[in-house]
């Protein structure tokens, strides 16, 4: 509470609790961590149970497109961090540019995902398809987890695109400035979490050789 009062005084009586806002964001991120953690747990147990079938099914995934998407997401994490650094240095232009790049990378990620999934669909591998259901249990589980986990992650990317677009407009309209950028910081935290989850999804699904 005392730090709240201090910061309010330090900012010329503007009533704002930046630490509180960030703490709220972190608490939300922990619920996300546990949500994906539960899915990783299911993956771990079934991979332990069906190592050979996970291996076989994993070979079906396109390592190239997975690697490309990893590079895209890592770079988008960099640009969102640079966008925050730029606004701290009162460089609005660079901040807007970096955030626009982040959005571009996010869209590129989803376009790749679209091509990746359509290729799978055209091979008859999608949840509930005859082709998939004719496979042994372990492979059905692998592809089920693949669609649920990368799908939920993709949903987070889409939500991230929406949030970062709103933030971009706010920067352009000077609603977010060098002395009031907590919203940008918190959206950045969310975006880094999306990147973090992918860092684990990538080797677990695409790098089973």
């Amino acid at each position: 509470m005392s730090s709240h009062n201090e910061s309010a005084v330090a900012q010329n009586h503007v009533h704002r609790d930046e630490v509180g806002a960030k703490m709220g964001m972190w608490l939300f991120l922990f619920t996300e961590l546990l949500l994906f953690g539960g899915l990783f747990l299911v993956y771990a147990v079934y991979r332990y149970q069906y190592p050979d079938q996970f291996h076989l099914a994993g070979m079906e995934l396109n390592t190239g497109i997975g690697t490309l998407n990893t590079i895209i997401l890592l770079t988008s994490s960099l640009t969102v961090a640079l966008s925050i650094a730029a606004i701290q240095k009162r460089n609005k232009f660079l901040s807007v540019l970096m955030l626009t790049l982040t959005l571009t990378f996010a869209l590129m990620f989803m376009v790749n995902k679209y091509f990746e999934w359509s290729a799978k669909f055209s091979h008859g591998i999608y949840p509930g398809s005859e082709e998939l259901l004719s496979l042994p249990n372990g492979q059905i589980l692998f592809f089920g987890l693949y669609y649920v986990m990368t799908g939920l992650h993709g949903l987070h990317v889409v939500i991230g695109i929406i949030i970062l677009s709103i933030i971009l407009v706010m920067i352009i309209k000077d609603k977010i400035t060098y002395d009031n950028y907590t919203k940008l910081e918190n959206s950045g935290l969310y975006w880094h979490l999306v990147d973090l989850i992918w860092i684990f999804l990538f080797p677990l699904f695409y790098l089973i050789q």
């Binding site: 994490s77 973090l196 860092i199």
Partner: peptide, 11 residues
């Protein structure tokens, strides 16, 4: 290692 970098520096 990668997530440690992202969490410590980026986040």
């Amino acid at each position: 290692i990668k997530s440690a970098l992202v969490i410590n520096i980026f986040m």
